[in-house]
């Protein structure tokens, strides 16, 4: 189990990460999601001691800095561009394998796993971003670790690559291992994560199972277009619905079934042009919660979750 307690980082008086605590359990794929600048990468760096700050992270009771061969327990990908441009991919991985006390055969194994065997003699400078991500994943998987910490691992991967990554991570978790991966795109996590940690403004604002978020009633709403939206909105509000004006003659209604909306429209003698049900994607739901011009992410997420 991984336990982080009170992680914090302040730069020039500004809190980049503020008192972040969470636990990760074996067999879980956990997403760390938040807008750019939310503190996701810094949180991951704090976990593995790459930056100095407050708090601590224990991997099965041991801090990363105190591990003798951490690469055999925790695989980390923080940036796909960490390589010397003149060194071949194979040499790059060999360097890491030797530094971790791993056999040279682990290099060929992970190159095959990530589909880079045919390009192992090329330098990463000649790779596409997707291939660099695969090389970064090769590095993280070298020691066949029980934990993976991956910062935006799907960046630059093509559709096939993303599918491959999802399968890899699911298989990894099914083996009883743990994955923490970050993304600013919730949709990326929708099909792979069991749990999501939301970060905004350096704080962990919510920790929820993805199934709970997917089942949130706030994701479903109805769109109504009619000739007298003001009168209909008043009547719907009196019945307890949440109504938002969405432009000329159009309303967005939450908390009421379509049938009841139709009945109230009929009673108000409104002429309906449209009455339809919609479900927001998790991505839209997230943007709805933390996007600009909305309530603070903390408040919104606490209310919803």
């Amino acid at each position: 189990m991984i336990v982080t307690e009170g992680l914090g980082k302040t730069i020039d008086g500004r809190k980049i990460v503020d008192d972040v605590s969470f636990e990760l359990h074996p067999g879980e794929v956990v997403g760390l999601v938040g807008p750019n600048g939310a503190g996701k990468s810094t949180t991951m760096k704090l976990m593995v001691n790459a930056v100095r700050g407050q708090g601590r992270t224990l991997f099965d009771g041991v801090a990363y800095a105190d591990m003798i061969s951490p690469w055999q327990q925790v695989g980390v990908l923080l940036d796909p561009n960490m390589f010397y441009p003149g060194r071949s991919a194979r040499k790059h991985l060999l360097m890491l394998a030797r530094g971790s006390g791993l056999p040279d055969s682990s290099v060929e194994r992970t190159l095959a796993l990530t589909g880079l065997s045919g390009r192992r003699s090329n330098t990463p400078a000649s790779y596409s971003l997707g291939m660099r991500q695969r090389l970064g994943l090769s590095s993280a998987l070298l020691g066949d670790p029980s934990v993976l910490v991956l910062d935006e691992p799907a960046n630059g991967l093509d559709v096939e690559g993303v599918t491959w990554l999802r399968q890899l991570l699911r298989t990894f978790a099914e083996d009883g291992r743990t994955v923490l991966l970050s993304s600013h795109l919730l949709a990326e996590l929708e099909q792979v994560a069991d749990r999501v940690l939301f970060m905004a403004g350096g704080r962990l604002v919510a920790d929820t199972r993805l199934s709970d978020l997917a089942g949130s009633s706030d994701r479903t709403y109805s769109v109504v277009r009619c000739d007298r939206p003001e009168a209909l909105a008043t009547a719907l509000r009196l019945e307890g619905a949440t109504v938002e004006d969405q432009g000329p003659q159009q309303l967005s209604v939450r908390g009421m079934p379509l049938k009841r909306i139709g009945e109230i429209a009929s009673a108000e003698t409104c002429t309906l042009y449209e009455l339809s049900a919609h479900t927001m994607s998790l991505e839209e739901h997230f943007v709805d919660l933390v996007g600009p011009g909305h309530r603070s992410a903390t408040t919104a997420l606490e209310e919803i979750l």
């Binding site: 790459a50 990363y64 800095a65 561009n81 441009p85």
Partner: peptide
């Protein structure tokens, strides 16, 4: 200098955290 420039110093400290 080389490791800082190409960001492999971060990788090095992940492999050898002490």
């Amino acid at each position: 200098g080389q490791e800082t420039r190409h960001r492999t110093l971060l990788l090095a400290t992940l492999v050898v955290p002490r």
